[in-house]
Every structure is written in C-alpha cells, then in structure tokens.
Design a protein around this nucleic acid. Structure first.
Length: 800
DNA sequence: GAGTTTGAAACT
DNA sequence: CAGTTTCAAACTC
C-alpha cells in the first residue's frame, strides 16, 4: 500500500546490514525528522526503536518504538516539567530506578504489585511523573539517560532473580552510523555484536538468560533490539515463520504512515521468530564485562520496553476498561491522575499514528484506550489485595506478568514456537486471570479482553469474526453481535465485559459507544444496582479465601470458579454455553448444572479433568467399545490436538512443575493436589483459543507427582501418551473414589455438599472441587463467601 | 450463511 | 424466588 509516507521511508541503506529487511522496516517506521532538541533526538536515537518485534508482543514496547511515540515526545512541551524531554526519555537515573524498584518491592505484595499503567499515557504528560510509582526499569543511553521499560520487566527481572533490577543489558555502540533513514537522531549504530549484552557478572548473565526464557516479551524485546542491529545473516539463525497471515494495515486500523510492504511482512515475520535459538544467540552475544553495566558508559542503550502484556496487537486494546476509564475520569475530577486516559481522549490522533496502535478516531474519544490494558477489569479476578498495590489502570500487569511467565515456560520446548507465539499473542486475551504467584488463573473467557491480532482485521461477518476470534491464537475481546439489546445489557459481551463496542462489532443500534458514555454508565449503574457483581469477574479465584500462608499455592486456577455457577442442562458443561467451561474453570457447588462433565472439574468434585472425564464419558456412551489407549488419545487429540502432543504435554508438565513447587511449599494437606493439577490445564489455551483442557497427560503429570509421594508413586508424569492412559486407568483403579465416568451419572451429578465430602477421599485423588480446594475448614460454602469477598469493589461501582 | 440450540439475562 | 421470555453466543448443518 502506497502511502505518502513511503517517500519518507525510502532512505537508501548506508551499509550492508542496513539492507536487511529489519532495517527497511525500521526505516519505514522511523519517519523521524530532525528536531531541535538534540537531546531528545539522541535519547531516542540511542534507543533501538528499530527493534520492532517487541512491538508485536507488547503495547508497552510498541509505543516506545513507534514513530508516533517519537513524535509525541519530540513535540512535548519542554516547558512542562513533566513533559520535558528528559523526563520523557530519562525516566530515572540508576539510583532512582533501583530505589524505586526496591521500594516498591518492599511495599508491595510479592509480585502482585506489578504496575502497568495505561501505556499510551506514559507517553504523555504523566510519563515521567508516574515512574516512581511504576518502577520502570530501563536502560541507559550514552548520555546516561535511562530509557524505560515497563514494570513488567522489573517483575520479570525479579522473577529471574537477577541481582539487580536493572537488566545489565547494554548495547555497545560500535560507532557505526545509522542508516540515513533513521535521520539525524540516530547517530550510532551498534553493530559490534560481540558484546551486545554486557553483564557485570556471570550471575547476571544467567539471570538474564533465565529472564529471557521466562519472559517471552522480554525475549522478544531483546531479540528485537538485537535484530535491529544485525545483518540478515546475523539473524538467520532465527527461524522465521513462513506462514504469516498478514492482514492489511487498514484492517488493522494502522494509520499512516504505513510501513513498506516489505517491512510490514518483516514485522510480521519477526513476530514469529523462533526463539529456540535464543540461547545460542545469547551465548554468542552475551558477555561479561565488569563495570560495563554501569549503564552510562555502556554505549547505546537497549531500548527494549519490556512489558508482561502479551502481544497487544493492533487495535482492540482500546476497548478494554473503557467504562472504568470513563468513570475514573469522571470520578477523579482530576485528569492529571489519569492524564493518560484523558490524553487518550484528546490526543488520540497522536496515538493513532503510532502505527502499531491503531486507534480509530471516529470521534470516539475513548476508543483510544489504554495500551497495556489487556484484560478487562471484569476479567480480572484479582483480589482486593491485589488491587491494593495496583492502580486502577494497571490491573493487567499481574495477569500479564503471569502470562508471560507461564508462556515463557514453554520457550525451551522443542515445539514451542507456536506455543510461544501464541503465548505472546494470546495470553492477554485468554482470560488468564490474576495470578500472583506464577500460577495462572483462568478468567472468564466470555469476558476476556484481548487483542485480536488477526481477528479484527479481515472479517466481515460476525460469524467469521467470531470464528476467527475463536481460532485465533490471540483470541480477544469478543465482538458482539447484538441486535436488540443495543449493547446495553449483559447480553452484550462487550458491555458485559465493560468495554465499548467497536467497529468489528456487528451490533445494531449500538449504544455502547463512547459517544453514549452517559447512557452506558447509567445503564451500567442500573445493572449494578440490581446486581453489584454484574460486572465483576464471572470467574474469580478464591485465593483470598485462604489464609495467607505465605505462599501462593492457593492462588491457582483450580481455585478459580465461576462466581455464580452455571445452570447448564444439556451441554454437560462441556461446551462454551457453559460459562464455567467457557471460563476455563471447573464447576462448583454453586452450579446448578445437570450432568456436569466439565472438563475443568465437575461440581461433584471429580478430578477427572478435561479429556479424562470426556474420555470416560465417551467411553460410557460408546457401549461395547473399548476405551483403548488409542481411542483415548484420539479423543484427546480431537479435543485438543495441540495438547495431545508430547510437546504440549511437556509444556503442561512444565507448568505443572511450577505449580508443584507451590504445592510443595504449601503446608496444606494433599487436597491441594488437584489444585496443582488444574493450573496446568487452564494456563494454556489451544490455538482455537479454547481453554486447553487438561489433557490427562497434564493432569496426571502434576497430580501424579503429588500422588507419587502420597501414594504409590507409580505414575510417570512424563510418560508418553499411552502411559497417560495407563495412568488414568491406574488412577481410577487405584482409587475407590467416585472418579468420573466410573461413577453413575446420578452420583456424578450429585449436587449436595456431601459430594464434596465424598470426593475428598482419603487418598486425596479426587479432590478437585473448589471446596475441597479450600481445605477442610468451614467448608463448603466458605469458599464462595470468600470469593465474593474477594471481588474488589470496582471503582465504577463504588464511586459517584 | 442460515438455522438451531443453549443458557444467561431480563422480566414478570 | 420461581417461572417465563428475551437475547445473543455457541453450535450444527
């Protein structure tokens, strides 16, 4: 697509490496004009904004690298103390930064306090001022100015156990000139890759490596930075996906200037980088250079702007939290506190132009929403505790971080390319709820708000959109198709999710738009008056229901339940009609479902998760048919082809292992075994965006480990699939529990509390019910009570 | 793509 | 609170 801007980006390459597609793309995205403030220019030029890949994995990264971002900062009013170039580019000096992190670490609850502000706003007036709160990490440019990265990086760093919150990542400049296309602002171009990563100690090297692996976005950002400095040959080690479905930029709502087609393709390709070779890459380019990480002298900084927000692709991010934003704005009466929000309204053009953050104008102020906000509040099952240290606009960070962590867990997996990409692109969207301990909590899928990459792009019909969204890796905010409700009822998924309808929606007479903000808010209030929890997360975790034992073992997906429970009659809780199933959580005793076969856990407490239960049920249905391993596997594959693969299993197992760590740290009884089981299930989603059911492989893997210690320990949780079947059989045979399909339907459907007690069998193998999860204490309903208690009072509910 | 099924939301 | 209606998503063909 030819755009006028193309002429701007047609700068001829200066050197060989500048001929690389990456460079082309970089140039295409860098319509940077020389500005008066050389200071600013240098600051940005020192930043490898050329590193675009991270853009695709994180809005945080995006805006920093987007031309519009540059423009914005360049145009900032220097007179404004908060808007000074220095403030914008120099978030914090080393000491401040460290202090900020350390302070925050002290004051916040573990990892829950990751604060990710609405990113676009960071670009703006509050960019610098909020830093002390957000504890951004950053890198230093040659001037000693530190570029920022989101707190996610910090958290990731912390997670990685690095000795210092500042990632000793420094790009050493070789003094080579930048491509002309980069303009005058980028004076140097670090090509000397031999010491691109300079660390002060081996520990940091390892920590960094770990961080990269654990945090896909971080890795993406790093790769981005690296790739931007390498010739194609340098990058050749990285596999690139050859199957990139490239929606048009118009479809992505990317506004001009468009990158060149080539660059666009490159961008998409980068997005699909295979990270398998990351280690090699790091090995090659990481170096230890004492005193080198003293930032300032390290040369060009690495501008990676890590964020745990997984891949907020173009567009839809804006939808999330709209309502809250609006209310916040209204309620706060002080836009300064939400200047980013206000800015999104009044300065959307700038944001729109950020290329990667397509924001349509349409006169809808709030359509430009908060980058960095991935999940809607409603989808956040974070607890009040979680909110304590998380600002209103930062609610996603926790999830995102966890998402990142989890998804990063698959980085080393043999076939993790796709999974990685998925994790990068979908996690945010995938209803993965709060998890402050490395364990994900799947949130209500219906409320998920993600950032559909492709789904938003090229679909005309609602069905297509839906289908695309469903199958898209980065399933996201669902677009509604309301015809009669005007999108002002909970029927409307958008409205229910607390987001405005946007263009992709196929709704009619939609009033759920920013221009009808008052109506929306009024309606929302009305609904809330009827049911204060109407907009609360449908799927909530019960972590807060547990006494704080000091570990996070209770904060597992298994503890997540639908707040109200389902009422399924025919679907068996095995279809997305079921909100529990849709939310990726097991049914609880709040459910009134009949014939519950919820893959994520039946309300009767059966731990026959996912395929296990289905296999059993299918086996029952297939009278006379033997439930051989092959059959089981087929079923499993049919259910979830991805998961039914060894690699997927490995991924699950990997996650499960993490969970097991929590479990072992848990002083609670073995009932937690099931808790440790589900997470592995729910934290992963299939390509179809369906919550990955706990393939028995996974389920058994985690549980088997537990049981190995508790019981016979005969299970091979890493066993191949056939063994999983065996394991499954073993489980059923060895347990006199009411497990799953062996149990009469009547019993399985037992809706009484007794069922819980039953399931909490001595062998502890069938204890997946939420109540059992909650432990033995005042049992049964206590979990639910606490769940309700755990639901934070959303600002919109309590204010006014 | 149209029609059906399903269950939540809304209504009575 | 229960029953019914409405609604839109999920699903099927």
């Amino acid at each position: 697509m030819d755009t006028p801007e193309k002429t701007q980006i047609a700068a001829p390459p200066v050197s060989a490496h500048e001929d690389s597609p990456v460079f082309n793309f970089i140039r295409s995205l860098s319509p940077i004009k020389p500005v008066k403030s050389t200071h600013i220019a240098q600051t940005f030029t020192s930043l490898p904004f050329t590193a675009l890949p991270s853009v695709f994995t994180s809005p945080h990264a995006n805006f920093h690298k987007d031309p519009s971002f540059l423009r914005r900062h360049q145009s900032l009013d220097p007179s404004n103390p908060d808007c000074s170039s220095e403030n914008h580019n120099i978030v914090c000096r080393n000491g401040d930064f460290i202090n900020g992190i350390s302070q925050r670490s002290k004051s916040s609850d573990k990892k829950v306090s990751v604060e990710v502000h609405a990113e676009p706003c960071k670009e703006h007036s509050d960019f610098a001022t909020e830093f002390p709160q957000t504890s951004r990490c950053g890198f230093y440019n040659p001037e000693g100015n530190m570029t920022t990265c989101s707190a996610g990086a910090e958290a990731a760093v912390e997670t990685a156990g690095m000795s210092t919150p500042i990632i000793p990542l420094a790009m050493k400049s070789s003094g080579k000139p930048l491509p002309e296309g980069e303009g005058q602002q980028q004076k140097e171009w670090p090509i000397d890759a031999s010491d691109l990563f300079i660390f002060s100690s081996p520990n940091d090297v390892e920590a960094f490596r770990e961080l990269v692996h654990r945090s896909p976005d971080f890795g993406t950002a790093c790769l981005s930075s690296l790739m931007s400095r390498f010739t194609p040959d340098d990058v050749s080690g990285f596999e690139r996906s050859q199957q990139v479905d490239l929606p048009s930029r118009e479809q992505q709502q990317i506004e001009p200037p468009y990158p060149t087609d080539e660059a666009y393709g490159q961008k998409e390709a980068i997005k699909n980088l295979d990270y398998h070779n990351l280690d090699k890459f790091l090995d090659k380019y990481m170096s230890i250079q004492l005193d080198k990480n003293s930032h300032n002298d390290a040369g060009t900084c690495v501008p990676f702007d890590y964020t745990p927000v997984p891949n907020f692709h173009r567009g839809l991010r804006r939808r999330c939290l709209d309502f809250e934003i609006a209310e916040l704005r209204k309620l706060s009466g002080d836009d300064s506190d939400y200047s980013h929000i206000a800015l999104s309204q009044h300065d959307e053009n700038t944001l729109v132009n950020d290329g990667q953050l397509p924001v349509e104008s349409e006169g809808d102020p709030l359509r430009c929403t908060l980058p960095g906000i991935g999940l809607h509040l409603n989808a956040l099952a974070t607890t009040s505790n979680d909110y304590q240290s998380v600002e209103h606009g930062n609610l996603l960070s926790e999830n995102q971080l966890m998402n990142t962590q989890i998804s990063s867990s698959s980085l080393n997996l043999p076939n993790s390319h796709q999974s990685l990409h998925e994790s990068l692109t979908s996690v945010a969207s995938e209803d993965i709820g709060s998890a402050d301990n490395g364990v994900l909590v799947v949130q209500d899928g219906s409320q998920s708000c993600a950032y559909p990459d492709s789904e938003e792009l090229d679909h005309n019909s609602p069905q297509k959109k839906r289908r695309k969204a469903e199958h898209s890796e980065d399933m996201a905010c669902k677009r509604c198709n309301c015809k009669k409700s005007k999108c002002l009822k909970l029927y409307c998924e958008c409205f229910a999710a607390g987001v405005y309808c946007i263009e992709p929606c196929a709704c009619l007479d939609c009033l759920n738009k920013p221009i009808h903000e008052d109506t929306v808010l009024a309606t929302r209030k009305q609904i809330e008056s009827r049911n204060p929890l109407a907009f609360a997360p449908k799927v909530i975790r019960a972590s807060d229901s547990f006494p704080d034992t000091g570990d996070d073992s209770n904060k597992t997906p298994a503890s997540a339940r639908h707040k109200r429970g389902c009422n399924c009659k025919k679907s068996g809780c095995l279809k997305k009609y079921c909100e529990c199933y849709q939310g990726g959580v097991g049914c609880s005793f709040n459910c009134r479902c009949e014939g519950c076969k919820n893959s994520f856990g039946r309300k009767d407490g059966s731990t026959l998760n996912g395929v296990e239960a289905e296999i059993i049920d299918e086996g029952k249905e297939n009278i006379g048919k033997s439930m051989g391993n092959q059959r089981s596997l087929e079923v499993a594959k049919q259910r979830d082809p991805i998961q039914a693969t060894p690699s997927a299993y490995y991924g699950y197992h990997h996650v499960a292992s993490l969970l097991l760590i929590n479990f072992h740290n848990d002083t609670k009884n073995t009932k937690w075994s099931s808790v440790c089981t589900r997470p592995s299930i729910q934290t992963t989603y299939s390509a179809k965006n369906e919550p990955l059911r706990s393939t028995s492989l996974v389920t058994t893997s985690s549980s088997s480990v537990l049981h190995a210690g508790q019981n016979q320990g005969t299970h091979k949780h890493v066993a191949p699939q056939p063994e999983f079947e065996k394991h499954y059989d073993d489980n059923n045979n060895n347990n006199n529990s009411n497990a799953g399909g062996k149990m009469p339907e009547v019993l399985r459907s037992n809706d009484t509390p007794n069922a819980v007690i039953k399931t909490a069998s001595p062998n502890g193998k069938r204890v997946s019910s939420p109540h059992s999860d909650f432990g033995s204490s005042p049992p049964l309903r206590s979990g639910r009570r606490l769940i309700l208690k755990s639901i934070p009072s959303f600002p919109s509910l309590t204010q006014h």
